[in-house]
Amino acid sequence: MALQDKYKELINAASAAGVQNLQVREQDNVLYIDGEAATGQIKDNLWAIYNKIDPDFRAGDLIMNINVSAMAAGARAKVTTASSNLNIRKGPGTDQPIVGKAEHNSTVTLVSKMNDQWWLVRTDQGEEGYAYAQYLAVQ
């Protein structure tokens, strides 16, 4: 219960923001918070609170997995790489061959979700393949 007290502000914020299927579990001195936020902004806000309570995520006592429900098949997502173009790969893994590129700041269509890390996407040029979810944001 001590960890739930430590991260109380975070848990309350997740509840207040309407995070769906919110699960807060403690196991072997690690707190696990899972749920689905409606937007990437809500997720980012929760991560900012996490970083405030545990600066630079040093304590190793929380695993927070918040998915964004706006990331859904059929949605349009912006490529949010720092400056480079996003690799589109044949399969879900960086060991897979690159079959195309999605331009930095361009928009792609989400086709289907492989897992929390990889999405099958289609560019406006018609290229289809797997892209890393971290660099995709539904507007």
């Binding site: 690690v30 995520f57 190793g60 006592d61 695993i63 998915n67 929390d116 971290q134």
Partner: peptide, 17 residues
């Protein structure tokens, strides 16, 4: 934060940073 978000989504038991 970007790195931590991705690592947290892999369902690890714990992350030692």
């Amino acid at each position: 934060p970007d790195l931590m978000q991705t690592l947290n989504s892999l369902k690890p038991k714990k992350i030692n940073n």
